[in-house]
Design a protein around this nucleic acid. Structure first.
Lengths: 244, 244
DNA sequence: ATGTTATAATGGTTAAACAATTCTAATAAA
DNA sequence: TTTATTAGAATTGTTTAACCATTATAACAT
């Protein structure tokens, strides 16, 4: 019920103060914090304690530290990187499975594509068309262009999130992609047939978005993601069967 | 294309070594690392540098540090907490709007409730029923039990995520709730009428889940969340109008 | 102009000590 | 005997002061 009341550790207090200053905007992206030897005076603490605080802020992705003249701690723009890293840790610690991640992606990708269908402007559709053209080129090159095809596929999905225009969806989808791509390398069989099928999926999705068919877009996007997951699941089983 | 090659910082090497030992299972949950003064000898470094490494590992959620006799650094079970914290930071840093957050919640809540409808067991339904009973009690007490009602509402939504059985959805929804509750206090008008309407929503949702109607569950849950958002939006406008 | 070097500012590391916390066991009191 | 108190030791938390490593800049040389 109650939280531990004490706040004994000095470095934690320093972390809190600097973090709040950044979140409140008192320290803006690119701003340089005072040098360690100055901060030490400001917080009335020792350099060691201060450095423990800076290490944590660096780990949180709030600051970057450079050595040398004109070096120091600089406020960083916050990105999805830290979330991805902690999610990666969860996956590697086996607290989150491929199945969980793929199911989550399926849901989010569906919503995002549905929203994109409602909100796409002419130039958005044009951009999607161009991505499809690019994908087609890679398919015609065969499996040697597998990686490029996957890259275009990802770009297209992220474009949907951008069209949907909600930064929360954009960030979350970015994080899921970053993490799930590691599985692709491991489990997704690199076959031309799969490239072609997925290209057909993408064409259908873009068509539905163009026609402003939100529900159809959502369902197609979900099926598309789900198919990727099934391929991986099958390959995983084959690998277990033949090389245990 | 290429990553920076150098690896100058000693503390980073210490972090990597300990983290790998934990992820490989060489250090198991609950295990105690050697005392700082021993680790210092093992890694042939100074205590200050070593402590910077321990601070980062603590921040990552991999270890917990206790003072006193029998204290030290203990390997922690990895939870979704770190993902939540970093995602929370991302949301706060980007100053995500209420609209974006509410829209995201609408989508996720819909999916989760749909999945719950497909997967709920008898005892899950029973638990949801009990929550509804509890909510009813608070409603009959009127707006004085507003906070308790909101708490039950949140519990019910989190229960859906639990029933859906996917830890990713659970974490994400938890974070959204934590963040959106800040807005509730500020913008949601505390009226008995709203309590009653939302109670009716919840009853409808639980009924749909009980009947295994996934699509209906999803739509009802989305509408429910959307109504909350509309209330807040209206109050926000009124506040702008009368006290600018 | 261009290349080299010295300088100084800054983070990175080390060492040794003392403070604060907390478990354990010895001791005292009931 | 049981319970309360106290002393001790192990451990993290903090401080201080010095030195090392990196790097931008300015002075200097070519």
């Amino acid at each position: 019920m109650f939280q531990q009341a004490k706040q004994n550790r000095i470095f934690q207090d320093v972390i809190n103060q600097i973090q709040e200053a950044i979140l409140k905007g008192e320290l803006k992206v690119g701003d340089k914090l005072p040098a360690e030897r100055e901060l030490k005076e400001i917080f009335k603490t020792s350099r060691g304690t201060l450095r423990e605080a800076l290490r944590v802020l660096e780990q949180k992705g709030l600051i970057a530290i450079k050595t040398g003249v004109n070096g120091g701690a600089f406020v960083k723009p916050v990105t999805t990187h830290q979330v991805s890293e902690s999610l990666d840790l969860l996956v590697r610690y086996q607290r989150v499975s491929l199945k969980d991640l793929a199911e989550f992606r399926e849901g989010v990708e569906g919503i995002v594509t549905g929203l994109a269908a409602e909100r796409a402007k002419k130039e958005d559709i044009q951009y999607l068309m161009n991505l499809l053209k690019e994908a087609k080129i890679h398919i015609d090159e065969g499996v040697s262009h597998w990686d490029e095809f996957i890259r275009v596929d990802n770009t297209l999905h992220m474009a949907m999130a951008h069209i949907a225009g909600n930064p929360v969806y954009q960030s979350v989808l970015q994080i899921v992609h970053d993490n799930i791509n590691r599985y692709y390398d491991q489990f997704l069989p690199k076959e031309e047939e799969i490239m072609r099928e997925n290209y057909q999926d993408l064409c259908g999705i873009v068509k539905a978005v163009e026609d402003r068919q939100a529900v159809k877009s959502r369902v197609l996007a979900q099926d598309h993601v789900h198919r990727f997951y099934r391929f991986m699941e099958e390959k995983e089983k084959r690998q277990e069967k033949y090389s245990p």
